[in-house]
């Protein structure tokens, strides 16, 4: 018999639930997904067929991903991360994205850049808006200019024939890509969490 869990409808259903439950503690989320997988396997084994009609019937009886997610979140009183205001999140993300360009400000630039990076990291780690894994990844991306700026500076000065102002500027712009990407990802994930908790 084919693996019922490999059915495209089942895969889409389970990943929809997985996406909507990032606000749950990780162990609880894995347990819920495992319970649902077992249920689908058993229910389909008992129905005897794996055609689309029986798959749909089993999934319909389970309920929509929204209903299940809401029930799972309701079982976790007091354990929800209270979402911070979206303004608070925006400031954190702006600090993260602007830290490197701030280095271009005359005289105070490097100091501003350092201050913005530190502030963004402190706000990131104190926030309930993201899980540890996201925070670790974002931290790496935000600190990446320490390595990428010198690396790009060497490459640019070789390519442009000397460590000119243009070469330095190009290196900074290239290195700014990773922190901006981190800010965009954090922004998306924060929006998703807000939607989950507003049910």
């Amino acid at each position: 018999m084919n693996d019922p869990l490999a059915h495209p409808l089942v895969l889409a259903y389970l990943s929809s639930i997985e996406e909507r439950t990032t606000a749950l503690p990780d162990a609880r989320r894995q347990e819920l997904l495992a319970d649902l997988r077992e249920h689908i396997e058993v229910a389909l084994a008992e129905s005897g067929t794996l055609d689309e009609t029986s798959v749909r019937r089993v999934l319909d009886q389970l309920g929509t991903p929204g209903e299940i997610t809401a029930a799972a979140l309701a079982e976790e009183p007091g354990n929800h991360p209270t979402p911070e205001t979206s303004r608070h999140t925006s400031i954190t993300l702006c600090l993260a994205a602007l830290a490197l360009p701030a280095a271009l400000v005359p005289v105070a630039g490097p100091l501003l850049s350092l201050a913005a990076t530190v502030a963004a990291l402190v706000r990131l780690w104190k926030s309930p808006q993201w899980v540890r894994r996201e925070k670790r990844q974002a931290t790496l991306l935000l600190l990446s200019p320490v390595v990428t700026v010198p690396a790009f500076a060497v490459i640019c000065s070789v390519a442009l024939g000397g460590l000119t102002a243009i070469a330095l500027l190009t290196a900074l712009l290239l290195a700014a890509f990773l922190p901006v990407a981190a800010a965009v990802r954090l922004g998306r994930s924060a929006t998703r969490l807000r939607q989950q908790l507003s049910w």
């Binding site: 819920l32 649902l36 009886q61 389970l62 309920g63 029930a71 799972a72 079982e75």
Partner: peptide
């Protein structure tokens, strides 16, 4: 909806 019982 049956799936809502699993969290319980």
């Amino acid at each position: 909806s049956q799936g809502t019982i699993y969290p319980l």
